[in-house]
C-alpha cells in the first residue's frame, strides 16, 4: 500500500513538474500572477539575500585568508573566495535561503487554499489550478533565483573585499584583479546554470506539497516542513550532480 502511494505521488509530482512550465505556452496567460510572484520572490527576498551573502563572503574571506596566511599565500584570498562563491557557495546558500522563505511560503499558501476549498472552487469554475497557481510560481522562481544569485554573489565578493583589505590588510586592487581573472565563461556559467535548476526544483516541490495538503493545520505544518526539508536535500544533491556534469561538459579537470 505504501509503495503504491509512493509511486502514485511520484507520478503526480512528475506530471506537475512537466505541466507547470508548459502552462506558459497555452492560453489563458496569467501574466499578472507571474509578475506578482516575481515581485514577491525577487524584490521580497532581496534584503535576506543581501544580508546572508554579505556575511558569507566575509566569513569565507576570514577563514581562507587565515589559512593562506600560515602558508604565506594570503594574496590569493580573492581568487579562492571568488571561485568558491561564484561556482558553489553563492548558488547553494541563496537557494537554501530561497527555499526557506519562498518555498515554505508557496507550500503554506497553496496548502491553506486547499484546506479552504479555494482550489476546489477553481476546478468547479473550470480553471486549471496548475496553470493558475503553479505555473506563475515555477516561472517566477526559475527567473528570480538566478537574478538573486547574481546580486548575492556580488555582495559576497564585496564582503570578501572588506575583510581582505580592512582586516587581512591586503591590496584592494590585487583582490579585484584576481576576481577579474576568475570571471571566465566556465565559472560564470557554472554559477548561473545552477540557480535556474534550483529555482525550478524548489517551486515544483513546494507547490506539489502545498497542493497535496490534507489533515487540517497539522497537515499544513507537515506539508510546509516537508517542502523545506525536501527542497534542501534536493538542492544539495542536485548541486553535486550538476557540478559533476558541468565539470565534464566544460572540460574542467579535478
Amino acid at each position: 500500500m505504501h509503495l503504491k502511494n509512493l509511486v502514485s505521488q511520484l507520478q503526480d509530482f512528475y506530471l506537475l513538474s512537466v505541466r507547470a512550465p508548459m502552462g506558459i505556452l497555452r492560453r489563458p496567460f496569467y501574466f499578472r500572477e507571474i509578475l506578482e510572484q516575481m515581485d514577491y520572490a525577487g524584490v521580497g527576498s532581496l534584503f535576506i539575500v543581501v544580508l546572508v551573502s554579505l556575511f558569507i563572503g566575509m566569513a569565507l574571506s576570514l577563514q581562507i585568508s587565515a589559512e593562506l596566511s600560515s602558508l604565506g599565500l594570503k594574496m590569493y584570498t580573492g581568487k579562492i573566495v571568488g571561485v568558491a562563491i561564484i561556482r558553489e557557495i553563492g548558488p547553494v546558500a541563496i537557494a537554501l535561503s530561497f527555499a526557506g522563505r519562498i518555498g515554505s511560503g508557496m507550500a503554506s499558501e497553496l496548502g491553506s487554499m486547499v484546506l479552504g476549498h479555494q482550489v476546489d472552487i477553481l476546478r468547479v469554475f473550470g480553471v486549471d489550478p496548475i496553470k493558475k497557481l503553479v505555473t506563475p510560481r515555477v516561472i517566477s522562481a526559475t527567473i528570480m533565483l538566478p537574478v538573486l544569485t547574481i546580486i548575492g554573489d556580488a555582495v559576497s565578493l564585496f564582503g570578501g573585499y572588506y575583510i581582505s583589505v580592512f582586516v587581512s590588510h591586503q591590496s584592494g586592487s590585487f583582490y579585484w584583479s584576481q576576481i577579474k581573472d576568475i570571471m571566465d565563461f566556465k565559472n560564470i556559467f557554472s554559477g548561473i546554470a545552477k540557480p535556474f535548476i534550483f529555482g525550478y526544483i524548489i517551486a515544483c516541490i513546494s507547490c506539489y506539497m502545498g497542493l497535496s495538503t490534507h489533515g487540517g493545520s497539522r497537515g499544513l505544518r507537515k506539508a510546509t516542513t516537508i517542502s523545506v526539508v525536501l527542497s534542501t536535500i534536493m538542492i544539495i544533491v542536485t548541486d553535486f550532480v550538476m557540478t559533476r556534469i558541468l565539470f565534464f561538459a566544460l572540460g574542467m579537470k579535478v
Partner: peptide, 13 residues
C-alpha cells in the same frame, strides 16, 4: 460541472 455551482462551508472566497 457547468450544471452546478457550489457554496462551501465558510464561503471559500
Amino acid at each position: 460541472r457547468m450544471n452546478f455551482s457550489i457554496v462551501f462551508q465558510e464561503g471559500a472566497l
